[in-house]
Computed example of a mutant assay.
Amino acid sequence: HIDLRAAGEEEWHTLRPLAWYEPADDDGAMLAPGEHTEQTVPVFFGEDGWSFAQPGEYEIRARLQLGDDFPEIASEVVSVTVVAPTSERDRAALEPLLDQHGALDEDIGRLIAFDGRIGAPQDMAPIERVVHEFPDTALGSALKLTLASHLLRPPIDTRTGTRPKPDADTARRLLESVCRESGIVALKAELLARHGEVDALQGLSVDDLASIAWDGADAARRPVPTYVDDSLRVLGTRIGFAAGRARLDDEALAAVARLAHELRSDTGRIVVVGHADAEGDCAASERLGLERAQAVRRALMRHGVPASRIQAVTMGARRALDLGASEQARTLNRRVELLVEEQGEPVEAADP
């Protein structure tokens, strides 16, 4: 079961979604005592349309019932923030997927939930439209996974009883451009793990891609734990950048100088994380994020912070602060953030 409630509510509401858990292999389906597993899966909640009827703060959990003789198993509670589309472009991207009542069309939702493998052929048309007309939106990026899955494993033709040949080349081109958000990248890695037709993207193996979905990557493209590392704390100051640039302006230089003044007296590790907006291709976003992080690292070093303490990594466009397609969202996402190792008195510089 999937349970849902608004933040602050006591009572859980049980939903009956169309979803599945699909281990990559037989070994992945077996757990030893004390082991745990996790998987990123899309969930569609059927006849009632949207899982979350209104924008707001929600909590969600999964429950597994093995039978009357076994205790119920509940997952950790996950907090979810739901926001309505704020830009005209985001609202236009959503429109082809809605029914006459303004809710997610159930047939399209089912097709999305099952990775484009279960549904009528005509239901793919709205998904293809969003992918091709709105590729810069978060929705367009996410639906590339549905379309790629459909191309890698097309549904069986009910008229002939045969499955069409996979179109791995088109699927590869789609997946090369999917890097908008960590959850989407994690789903991409799991999609690739299920299909052998595409074994690597941008020089990264499927395992490497899965590793960096939630982490940063250094200059050698090795995964570096960032926001998932409990020993690191995010400083409040964000260093902003102009579109397509890695140069620190006067305001950014002043902010780095204040940070360096606070950090010099500490001895802990500093991870400088560079971020990009969703403009341009994935490789360009990764490269620009790293260049921004390296620019801040050099500035910290000029102000006396030892180079041995500072590591520069990129998250490209994988950790957006705002998933919208507006210029305001893009400006917010073009940034560098500093993560510092927890020790001694907290370090916190004021925002410039």
Rank of each mutant, 00 (worst) to 15 (best):
T237I: 02
E176A: 13
L152K: 02
L97A: 00
T237D: 06
F70R: 12
E197R: 13
A193Q: 08
L290V: 01
F134Q: 04
G268F: 11
I108K: 05
R292D: 01
P164E: 05
A24W: 08
L151C: 03
R309Q: 01
K144L: 04
P306D: 03
Q343N: 15
I310N: 03
D250R: 10
R302S: 01
E133F: 09
S141A: 14
G274P: 02
T267N: 10
V313H: 04
M315R: 13
I156C: 09
V178A: 04
D27I: 14
L152M: 10
G183H: 10
E251V: 10
G274Y: 00
S141H: 11
A84S: 05
Q65E: 14
W20Q: 14
Y58H: 00
S75T: 08
W12G: 09
P223W: 14
T146A: 06
E190K: 01
A307I: 04
R153C: 13
A295R: 03
R180M: 13
E47M: 11
L338K: 04
Q202D: 15
G49F: 11
A148M: 00
S75H: 04
L64C: 09
D105M: 03
G8P: 02
E128F: 10
E47G: 13
A92M: 09
P346F: 00
P166V: 00
Y58F: 03
H303D: 15
D25T: 12
D250S: 10
G46W: 04
R330T: 05
L209C: 09
I184A: 12
P223G: 08
P71D: 07
R264Y: 11
V83P: 04
T40H: 09
W214Q: 14
L4D: 04
A168G: 03
L15R: 12
L248W: 00
A210V: 14
L97G: 01
L187M: 11
D99P: 02
V271E: 01
V41H: 15
S182I: 09
L18H: 12
R318A: 07
R298L: 07
A113E: 05
L97K: 01
V313R: 06
D107T: 13
G274H: 01
D107E: 14
A92G: 06
R287C: 06
A142P: 06
P135T: 05
S75P: 03
S231M: 15
L209P: 10
G183I: 08
R247L: 11
A329F: 00
V43M: 10
V131Y: 05
D266W: 15
L288M: 06
P155I: 07
P135V: 05
D123R: 11
W50F: 14
A125H: 12
R309I: 04
L290C: 07
R233F: 07
G140Y: 02
I73V: 13
D115Q: 15
K165C: 11
E197P: 05
V178R: 02
A113N: 02
G203V: 07
R245H: 07
E9L: 01
R153D: 14
P352W: 02
L263Q: 06
L151M: 02
L147Q: 05
R129Q: 10
D250L: 10
R221H: 12
A29V: 09
L111W: 05
A252Q: 01
W20L: 13
A32Y: 11
D69L: 08
I310M: 03
T226H: 09
S79T: 09
I270V: 13
